[in-house]
């Protein structure tokens, strides 16, 4: 019987990998943002599991910071999506190629 923190860490790793795959395979910006949310959740889960493993409150503090960062990121990202949709009438990231580096 494995200890429960390892199982939770494995779950966090699985969620993170799923988020990475979602970011890579999707072409719609909204789905990419959802996948980023999944990845942030996975990292928060790992932090809370580690904090619970050593009985320290630091993990939950980091989780609260991740939560605040996710909220700010989502608000900015959704505002950008609105602007992109109003200018290009599309959410396809392959069509946003005018910003050539």
């Amino acid at each position: 019987m494995k200890s429960s923190t390892e199982i939770v860490m494995l779950l966090a790793g699985l969620l993170f990998v799923l988020g990475v795959a979602g970011v890579i395979i999707r072409k719609n910006i909204i789905f990419m943002l959802l996948s980023v949310e999944v990845m942030l959740n996975a990292s928060g889960l790992a932090f809370v599991a580690a904090g619970s493993r050593w009985a320290q409150p630091d993990g939950q503090v980091m989780f609260i910071f991740i939560l605040a960062m996710a909220a700010a990121e989502v608000s900015i990202g959704l505002a950008l999506i609105l602007q992109i949709y109003h200018q290009h009438k599309s959410l396809d990231i392959d069509k946003l190629k005018e910003m050539k580096g």
């Binding site: 605040a68 608000s75 900015i76 505002a79």
Partner: peptide, 15 residues
């Protein structure tokens, strides 16, 4: 974090 949230709100309102 408070400054980040404030910047997020202002940036979202601006964008």
């Amino acid at each position: 974090a408070a400054m980040l949230l404030m910047a997020g709100v202002v940036g979202a309102a601006h964008i």
